[in-house]
Nucleic acid binder design. Structure first.
Length: 282
DNA sequence: AAGTGGACCTGCTAGC
DNA sequence: TGCTAGCAGGTCCACT
């Protein structure tokens, strides 16, 4: 479900409220994508720091209260990924846990609950040196869309020699993070680039246009509260509205909003891909 | 190295 | 109504 905008909207909806709270307990349901790591007992009593996002990952720093008053100490945290179907809620009383609630962090200010029916999500516990950034697990991730280093020249250099379709290169996350299936389709539509175009063949001008459109589509989606295709909610339970404005995603056969020709659907890298064959060129 | 395809797991929908 | 096949927003891994 969640691409970068949904993760960021989720983060913003609970980060301020949870920061400064103290962990009382952690409840785990069925196992998720990766094992949790060390025994979670040690995070009881920790104070929650500022929640950060990197790509589609959230990092919840947890610092052990130090009775001696000395600063420092080993800092750890929870690394959370929402997978395809995950969502987080934070509240003072979320009611009884359901069969798809696989993680709940009970704090002095409320419960942070991960609901994830498909269990492609992940919760990892570990020291910031291995899970936080700059950490090993996230080291393969590309630029944040807001990163100043990211421009047409950078993108073109990274795509050089790749024959894979540009859409797959965009979604791979090793060059730019955050554009999943919906936003990759939308950004390519806005940039008027056929998603099947071999990545290494894009001109500098088209790379620049693509960077600009990836940035703007993600920023707009965050502004609108994310996409609520099916069931996305932020940690307050509020829905997003971006899906009302998709130009191509999920619109096979419907009229292109620019030229009125029918939106096409193909499969690239086993993912449904939507585009306008008239507006988008190789 | 880069590309491809399968795997993970469950719920929903369209079609028979 | 009930069954089945196909589909879904993400990532990792093994293989060519």
């Amino acid at each position: 479900m969640p691409e970068l905008p949904e993760v960021e909207v989720t983060r913003r909806s609970f980060a301020d409220r949870i920061q400064g709270s103290v962990v009382r307990s952690l409840h785990l349901g069925k196992p998720l994508r990766w094992p949790l790591g060390r025994a979670p007992d040690e995070l009881v009593g920790c104070e929650v720091g500022a929640v950060l996002r990197r790509g589609k990952y959230l990092w919840l720093p947890l610092r052990r209260a130090d009775p001696s008053g000395a600063s420092g100490g080993d800092e750890g945290g929870l690394l959370i990924h929402l997978g395809m179907s995950g969502s987080l809620r934070f509240g003072a009383d979320l009611g009884p846990r359901g069969p798809h609630d696989h993680m709940e962090l009970v704090t002095s200010r409320g419960q942070l609950r991960l609901t994830d029916p498909r269990r492609f999500g992940a919760v990892l516990w570990g020291p910031s040196t291995t899970l936080g950034w700059p950490g090993k697990l996230l080291s393969g991730l590309g630029c944040e869309p807001t990163d100043e280093r990211l421009d047409g020249r950078y993108l073109q250099a990274r795509l050089k020699g790749r024959r894979t379709p540009i859409k797959q290169a965009l979604m791979a996350g090793d060059i730019v993070v955050g554009a999943g299936n919906i936003y990759a389709c939308e950004a390519l539509f806005r940039a008027r680039i056929d998603p099947r175009t071999p990545a290494g063949r894009l001109s500098l001008a088209r790379c620049q246009r693509l960077v600009d459109e990836v940035r703007s589509v993600l920023a707009e989606a965050i502004e609108l509260g994310g996409s609520s295709l099916k069931d996305f909610r932020d940690a307050h339970g509020a829905q997003g509205h971006f899906q009302l404005s998709t130009a191509v995603y999920g619109r096979e056969g419907e009229a292109c909003r620019v030229c009125l020709s029918p939106v096409k659907r193909v499969v690239l890298g086993q993912r449904a891909t939507f585009f306008c064959g008239n507006c988008q060129k190789r």
